[in-house]
Design a protein around this nucleic acid. Sequence first.
DNA 1: ACGGTGTACTATGTGTTGTGGTACACTTGG
DNA 2: CCAAGTGTACCACAACACATAGTACACCGT
Lengths: 127, 127
Amino acid sequence: MFYIDQKSHKSICDQIIDNYKELIVMNVLEYDEKMPSVRELSKTLRVNPNTVQKAYKKLEEQKYIYVSKGRGTFVSNDYEKEIDIAQLREIEIRLADDISKLFYLGVTADKAREIIEGIIAGREEWK
Amino acid sequence: MFYIDQKSHKSICDQIIDNYKELIVMNVLEYDEKMPSVRELSKTLRVNPNTVQKAYKKLEEQKYIYVSKGRGTFVSNDYEKEIDIAQLREIEIRLADDISKLFYLGVTADKAREIIEGIIAGREEWK
DNA sequence: ACGGTGTACTATGTGTTGTGGTACACTTGG
DNA sequence: CCAAGTGTACCACAACACATAGTACACCGT
């Protein structure tokens, strides 16, 4: 399980979303595995049930989980099927923006490549 | 000159900051060149003078511009001298976060490299 | 029928951002 | 010298996002 960083710049809702995406994509959680209920997770993480519900709703919209009313929420594997183009564009814009900021700091193109290769390599190790 | 996107997710203040960093780093504005006054720029961009002032203040803190009280604000070139480690770390974290999101979408490591190389190459052309 | 589940809604407090307005100190040019 | 232009520093206000608090309803399985 993960924990919530109250001091983070990221909203609690986004932290829940990203942590679960990580767990699901890395297959720590398996297909059809039951998620904690909204009320239970809100107790565990000590956040408001509404915040958890908001996170679950977005995860469901993006097909990372699916819902069976009255039974609970479960891990899906539909997320693999096709890449969401709109979200991809959004991330590309943010990446371009942050890479620009590297240049503003005086980082050279090669140094930027080096930094990013380090990040990607770091992720691959765990996969 | 640039313009402000009122619909952007980025704050007006940050838009001013980033646009000027771009102009300064790309040498569109030269060393010692006079910047528009706070009041003038606020009229041009149709935003509040306080917002422009906030942006100028941050640009001055980061040595992109310097101020001569009563005379005006001018482009600096001190930004080249050394890389701000704290800011670099911040950007690295955001980059790592966005690259993670690429993985969540099902993008492979090689495809991620391709996307990022495209962004960097795009910037280099203009330099 | 009951308890656990997801869902929906309203209301409230807080923090950030942008705006509006005022005041002051400084420099330059007439 | 003085007026105009400049940066700087406040304060108050509105809008918005976020998290919280509480309530109510519908669904499912035992």
